[in-house]
Computed example of a mutant assay.
Amino acid sequence: MTISQQKLTVMFRIEAGCLGPQGISHVASFCKHAKAELEVLYPDFIDWHVTPRSDKSLPEISYSIGGRGLNRAQATRYLALFGHLIDEFEHAVFDHLPEIIDHYFGR
């Protein structure tokens, strides 16, 4: 199997604070909701994992394939195989986050 036949795992870590002052009580269920909404983005080559960001030393977004972590340059090359730039990809994810939050809170 070649790299382009494997899905890229995107680990998206959500800060409880982005959900407001009571975010800590919502973050776990919000992550499940966000995963469901993100799965419609790039379903052919992305496997989304969404989790609370409890360890601030970990990045908000990280990448892996087959359980093996990728550095930014490797993730950049992978996304380029599908015609995407990593900066644009990440901006699209972060730009979509407010909509996901609004859906979650029913706004």
Rank of each mutant, 00 (worst) to 15 (best):
M1W: 01
M1N: 04
M1K: 01
T2V: 00
I3H: 04
I3M: 14
S4D: 14
Q5H: 03
Q5N: 12
Q5V: 00
Q6G: 01
Q6P: 00
T9Q: 14
V10A: 13
V10D: 10
M11R: 10
F12V: 06
R13Y: 03
R13I: 01
E15C: 09
E15G: 02
E15D: 15
A16V: 01
C18H: 02
C18T: 11
L19D: 05
L19I: 06
L19E: 06
G20K: 05
Q22I: 04
G23A: 07
S25H: 12
H26I: 00
V27N: 08
V27A: 05
V27D: 05
A28Y: 10
C31I: 09
K32Y: 12
H33T: 01
A34M: 06
A36N: 13
E37Q: 15
E37S: 06
E39P: 01
E39W: 03
V40S: 13
L41S: 09
P43Q: 08
P43R: 04
I46K: 05
I46Q: 09
I46P: 06
D47Q: 15
D47L: 05
W48A: 03
H49V: 14
V50H: 10
V50P: 12
V50F: 12
V50N: 13
T51E: 15
T51M: 08
R53A: 03
S54N: 15
D55S: 04
K56R: 11
S57N: 15
L58C: 06
L58W: 03
L58H: 09
P59G: 15
S62F: 03
Y63D: 08
S64M: 09
S64I: 02
G66S: 07
G66H: 01
G66C: 04
G67I: 13
G67H: 12
R68G: 00
R68F: 04
G69W: 10
R72C: 06
Q74K: 05
A75I: 02
A75F: 02
A75Q: 05
R77M: 06
R77Q: 13
R77F: 00
Y78V: 05
A80P: 02
A80N: 11
L81S: 11
L81Y: 12
L81E: 14
F82E: 04
F82V: 04
G83T: 03
L85I: 00
I86S: 08
I86L: 13
I86Q: 11
E88I: 01
F89G: 14
F89S: 13
E90S: 10
E90T: 11
E90H: 09
H91A: 14
H91T: 12
V93M: 15
F94T: 11
L97Q: 15
P98S: 02
P98A: 03
P98H: 05
E99Q: 12
E99N: 13
E99P: 00
E99I: 08
I100E: 10
I100L: 11
I100G: 07
I101G: 04
D102M: 04
D102K: 11
H103S: 14
H103V: 01
Y104P: 01
F105D: 07
G106V: 02
R107T: 10
R107W: 12
